[in-house]
């Protein structure tokens, strides 16, 4: 470990780093004095303590953490207003069970918005509104929407209009939440720093809740938990080729065609959801599996942030304003 190289690296992205250390001169001096006695194995803990002092609660979060959390926050807004609009769209004729499920899900998203805003503090983006989103993909009438999605707001005022088709609503809901699961999974490593372990754990605790949401929405789509219809509550490999892709809105480092079950970039790290290779092992064949699709189902896949942005911009009223 080269401590000084690490500090130098951080200083490149956070010019205030050295100031932080300087303003905590006592802590730094203490560390240096202590360092004469510490062994090599104790050094990581000492470094960790130093960073905790430097990036205390009142100090700025690392830039990568802020970026990940603000992307997550925008996705939570996208979902919150999506479910909230549905709950206020009488034309959907939601059953009592469906309404109950989506009230729970919407409320969870609002709680997530709040916890993310609290964590980010002043680094949080400005609050978004229903009008920030156009679920028809017309980007507020600036381009042709994907045909069936016009049921998610209409063709005259798509940033405010009600939803009118339950099947379309449920399908897009599943795809939003599965995209969210992949986004949190892809973002987790950026939160895994010695000073942000609590934030990492909170994000993991949102990630699994989103996966629970997906499971529930999928059971609603197939007509209830006892239905034998598709979709399963987990992602099956046929969904990768059978789910139409979307344009990436020019986002760099994302595939030209993006989608909730398609690969991100680089493909080796962010494969499509029909992937069966985990760390070079073929998880379909290493065990005795009865189902020919279990290997792909048993592992969900992450997406890189840029690919998530490429997907999400399709649902922004102004794609230059969101998911940047």
């Amino acid at each position: 470990m080269d401590l000084f190289q690490i500090i130098d690296d951080i200083a490149k992205v956070d010019p205030e780093t050295l100031d932080r250390f300087d303003s905590r001169r006592a802590a730094f001096r203490n560390f240096l004095g202590f360092g004469k006695k510490v062994t090599a194995t104790a050094l990581p803990l000492a470094v960790s303590t130093l960073f905790t002092k430097a990036y205390g609660q009142t100090a700025a979060l690392p830039a990568a953490v802020v970026a990940t959390l603000n992307l997550a926050l925008q996705l939570e807004y996208l979902e919150y207003f999506y479910y909230d609009t549905a709950l206020n769209s009488s034309g959907l004729n939601l059953t009592a069970d469906e309404r109950g499920a989506f009230e729970i899900i919407r409320n969870d998203e609002l709680l997530h918005i709040n916890i993310l805003r609290t964590t980010l503090g002043s680094a949080a983006i400005a609050p978004l509104t229903r009008a920030s989103f156009d679920y028809t993909t017309s980007q507020n009438l600036s381009r042709s929407p994907v045909a069936p999605l016009t049921a998610l707001g209409g063709t005259t005022s798509p940033t405010t209009g009600p939803f009118t088709d339950k099947a379309v609503f449920l399908l897009a809901a599943q795809q939003f939440v599965d995209t969210g699961v992949r986004a949190y999974k892809g973002g987790a490593p950026s939160l895994n720093t010695s000073t942000t372990k609590d934030i990492l754990e909170a994000a993991l605790n949102i990630h699994s809740v989103e996966a629970r949401h997906s499971s529930r929405i999928r059971s609603l789509r197939r007509g209830g938990v006892q239905s034998a219809n598709a979709p399963k509550s987990w992602i099956t490999p046929d969904e990768t080729p059978n789910t139409p892709g979307l344009p990436n809105n020019g986002v760099a480092n994302s595939p030209t065609t993006v989608g909730p079950y398609l690969a991100g970039l680089p493909v080796a790290n962010f494969p499509a959801e029909d992937n069966i290779t985990q760390a070079t092992l073929n998880v379909q064949t290493i065990g005795t599996l009865v189902s020919g699709t279990a290997g792909a189902e048993a592992f969900d896949e992450p997406l890189n942030a840029e690919t998530v942005k490429g997907i999400a911009k399709n649902f922004a009223a102004n794609p230059t304003a969101l998911f940047n």
Binding site: V181, Y184, K185, A188, P189, N192, L204, H207, S208, V209, E210, A211, R212, H213, S214, S215, R216, S219, V225, S233, W234, Q278, A279, E297, A298, F299, D300, E301, P302
Partner: peptide, 17 residues
């Protein structure tokens, strides 16, 4: 961490169902 994430979301799908 990523591998754990790949598995835990599937466990969460199971749990919810």
């Amino acid at each position: 961490l990523t591998l754990a994430g790949k598995i835990v979301s599937v466990e969460a799908r199971h749990a919810a169902l």
